[in-house]
Every structure is written in structure tokens, then in C-alpha cells.
Amino acid sequence: MMHVRRPVLEVQGLSVTFAGETVGAFGKRPKPFRALDEIDLTLNNGEALGLIGESGSGKTTLGKAIVGLVPLSAGTITLEAGDAAADRRGRARKVQMVFQDPYASLHPRQTIGQTLAEPLRIHKAVPADAIDHMVAQLLERVGLMPHHALRYPQHFSGGQRQRIAIARAIAIEPSMIIADEPVSALDVSVQAQILNLLDDLRRERNMAMLFISHDLSVVRHLCQRIAVMYLGRLVEVAPANALTRRPAHPYTTALLSAVPRVHAGNAPVHKPIVLAGDIPSHAAIPSGCPFHTRCWLYDKKGKPAQCRNARPPLAQHEDGRQSACFFPKEAASA
């Protein structure tokens, strides 16, 4: 099947500012901080883009901003043709989100059938008398049985609930799905089932998918492109293979090296780059390159002043990669 590639999502200069949280009883007055800082991103139909980064880097906030759950402080989000910010219902038809916790995201007193019928009814996706049939089809498509429509969420395992959440997300045939750590709460042996399901649905419906995860192996497997976030900024965006083979940002290199690997007995034992210190807080984002305080390349290069003084922009390189580092060619190996 041939599909014309067209952008489904265009994010430009997106920033999100939060009021900030008071820490404990001794916290000083909270200062507003930028959870997302000038994000530019596009996503084509049928494409899976992986979003990785450590906790607090802003991955969920980006997902929520795209579906309209957090107010933007700057920038634009364009979904397919037309600015979706105008109309929430219109936006919901185009983009749906699947969350990490399938327990929290399903209504405990609604049957699965009611849960799945709701979006179909609200969006008048099918005639009223066809809803039951559609619900049955959805359940079968995600690997459940039509009679499950009569049951309540608590009768299902974590993996099954995530299937239900996925069925709800695809019910109105959105052009894009945002999956936020959809398998992180599931057992390893069940994860692969859900990942295959998401992959199949993306292909057969030519959906775009923003796949948020902290599991780099899973992201590499599932996504054609990967975006790496650090402290609310994109530091590298590149095709999955290129990014995992030859990262162009030292943070990406460190993340990749920290992935625990199952190594065969005769393979060289892999030595991770252990970054010094913790991720800085949003309240104290370092000057210049926000990563320089933990950067192994900065140390290796004798602490160039440039990294402390100027913030490297997310620059376009040949071969379609983008990286926010002054030394992208030296970033691949420590």
C-alpha cells in the first residue's frame, strides 16, 4: 500500500510555563518555570516518533499540550490542516492519548461497552444502531472478546485494560495517537503483546504515533524517528537507526550507553558512561548548554567556554538529523 506522506502534526516554538510547586513546608515561594522550551517538531501520517528523556524532562507535558490538556504559553500546534486549538472536539477526533496507568484511566463504574460507546456517540462516528456492532469489532481488533463489553474494568488484568484503553483511543479513527509510557506498568511478557498491537494499528490505519517511553530499546524497535528531551528542550531528533548507531548529542550517547544489555558470553562487556550528578531542577537550569554540567564531552574537551556561555540551537545537520550540541561529530563515543 502506498501512502502519500503528509504532516499530521506541526509543533512550532511551543513553550509551556507552570506556576511551580512549593517544596515541603520550607519551600520558598514557587517560581514559574518553563516545562517546555521552544519545541519544534513535525510528525507525518503513518510515522512513529519516539520521545525519550529522563523523568521530569517534559515528555508528558508535550503529549498533553498536543491533545489540549495544558495551556500553551507560546508557539503553535497544527494538527493536519487547520489549527485545532479552536475546537476541542475537532482536536479529539484527530488525536487521542493512551496513558501509562490503565487502572486510573478507565471509569470503574462503566462497563467496557459503555466506555467504548461514549466516544462513538459524542463524535457521531457511527449511526446509533451500529454502535454495539462497532464496540464488538473494536474489542476483537485489540484481542478481546465481544462479550467483554458487559464487564467492568476491575475484571481485567493490566494488559487487558491497556488493550481497552487502546480500543477507546482508536474508536473514532484519529489520525494520530499519543502513547505515554503505555507498557511501563506491564510485565515484560505482556509488554510485547501490546507493542505489537500498537505497531499493527499504526500500519493498518496509517496513523501517526507519538510514543513516549524511557525504554530506549522499545523506542528503537517501534519508531522510525526518535526525539531526545532534556530539561524541557529537544536535544536531538534523528532517524532511529542513525541515532542509536551514531548519536550526535553527548546526552543521547550517555543514555544509550546506560541501557542495561543482555550480552552474550563472548561479546565485549559494555561499559556505560556514568554521568556525574543529578538532573538539574527546572528552577536552576544551567547557563549556556543546559547539559554542560553533566556532559562528558565538555570535560573531555577541556571545558570550552562556548558551552557555558551560549545555548546551542537544535541545528539541522546533513542526513536529516538535528542536534543541539556545538560538537555533534564528536558526540558519538566517549
Binding site: A192, S217, R261
Partner: peptide, 24 residues
């Protein structure tokens, strides 16, 4: 074997994951 096959590798492209059917 199932556990090892169910998780993709970071160093190699994987065609398709081989899940273990069912659940514990």
C-alpha cells in the same frame, strides 16, 4: 527463552517482537 525474545535489543533492529501468549 520467551523473556529474552520478548524484549527488543538496543543494538540491533528487530523485525517483530515475539510475545509470550497469555499472562502469568
Amino acid at each position: 527463552r520467551g523473556l529474552l525474545a520478548a524484549h527488543p535489543s538496543i543494538d540491533q533492529a528487530t523485525e517483530r517482537l515475539n510475545p509470550i501468549a497469555g499472562m502469568p
